[in-house]
Design a protein around this nucleic acid. Structure first.
Lengths: 209, 209
DNA sequence: TCGTTTCCTGACCATATGGTCAGATATCAG
DNA sequence: CTGATATCTGACCATATGGTCAGGAAACGA
């Protein structure tokens, strides 16, 4: 029951295997969607027998839930950059940087989340209604404070947040489309340009530049 | 072979049935993804026997391809508003209005497209490489012209287009999430506010307001 | 009316999938 | 070393799915 009781050797193995499964699952779920993904394929990618997956995750949905939760945690952490900031230029700028970096490093997680929401959030409805809602309310209030203090143009805070999510996640979710139009995957320089473009547009849009 | 030869009664029936199938398919594909959608469910939604679907569309992929193509056509039409415009305020403003309206009226089509692209565009790769690429090149040139004429701030035209797509389609693709955060589906007033917010932010962002 | 073509459909099939389970294997505490 | 526990896996199963097909019904031209 208690994981701290579990011996070192086994615990290490367990974490390693679980991590491999999650990584494989994230990739497969992102590329095929929940319905299109198969436990067999995830097992193959992870290099494990299918039955072993069911030892770690009872059902496909359990595994999926874990993958979605992971990306959500990552996003929540990225938001902390926004809180300590003295104003919108630093706060929103840092948030954009962080979100863009996540789109670059975790494109599959972003896709899984997008897919889940698009399908009506059947397994993460509670996250939306609790954690995300609270988070949104708090940041909207922060933005409103900046507006009241005359640090930025009077924009609707919620819609600004939607725009931040939309623009940054677009580079993950629609990465394939962008790559095709770009004539190949984005280079380091391309990513810097993308980041600068998004930041420049939005900061100018809120009148903070 | 030639459809104009087909008698009126049959032609009318055929179009009606085909339309019903496409409408049902769009809904089901959007809600379940390509892999998760079943011909049986599409048939049920359309109110037809499953075998009948296969009379109109040989395979699931054929039907899917049709649905994706339909939304793509709609988007292409929306772009025409941009061309005749004398400058960015009218052109981009009209484009945002049109895209937002499509997000509102055809959220399912937008989701199907997003899902397709996220999965690596297995069936519409050619659209991306031909039609969409040409379209993008043309509009980027138009935007660059506006920049050169001093009608707007010097922004990267491609990234501006990505931002336009991201922000407008977000209201369709993530409509569920937005509805939850909004405490219910967007009302007419909410949509007007969303439209105004997106337009205001972006037009200010490109220095055209 | 009549033969022809198009349209429709229930029943069926091969296959793939999520999940199970008994038994083998490895690791552990004592 | 030994018994107990956790981990692993090949073989298996019930079910669901995309797709087929033979034959019936409806619409058509003449």
């Amino acid at each position: 029951m208690n994981e701290t009781v579990r011996p070192a050797r086994r615990l290490e193995n367990r974490q390693q295997t679980e991590s491999a499964i999650c990584q494989a699952a994230e990739k497969v779920f992102a590329e095929a969607g929940f319905g299109g993904a198969t436990m067999q394929l995830i097992a193959d990618v992870a290099g494990l027998p299918k039955a072993n997956l069911h030892y770690y995750f009872a059902t496909k949905e359990d595994l999926y839930r874990r993958v979605v939760r992971d990306i959500f945690e990552i996003w929540l952490q990225a938001a902390e950059a926004m809180d300590a900031a003295p104003g919108p230029v630093e706060g929103i700028g840092a948030y954009i940087d962080a979100k863009m970096e996540i789109s670059r490093r975790h494109p599959n997680g972003s896709k899984v989340w997008a897919s889940e929401v698009m399908h009506g959030a059947p397994v993460i409805q509670d996250y939306l209604e609790t954690t995300l809602r609270d988070w949104t309310t708090g940041r909207a209030a922060l933005i409103q404070r900046w507006v009241d203090e005359g640090k930025m143009r009077a924009v609707n805070p919620e819609h600004l947040l939607y725009m931040l999510w939309a623009t940054t996640q677009h580079y993950a979710d629609f990465g394939h489309q962008i790559a095709v139009l770009n004539g190949g995957a984005l280079t380091e320089a391309d990513w810097q340009a993308a980041k600068a473009s998004v930041k420049g547009m939005i900061l100018a849009g809120i009148g903070a530049l």
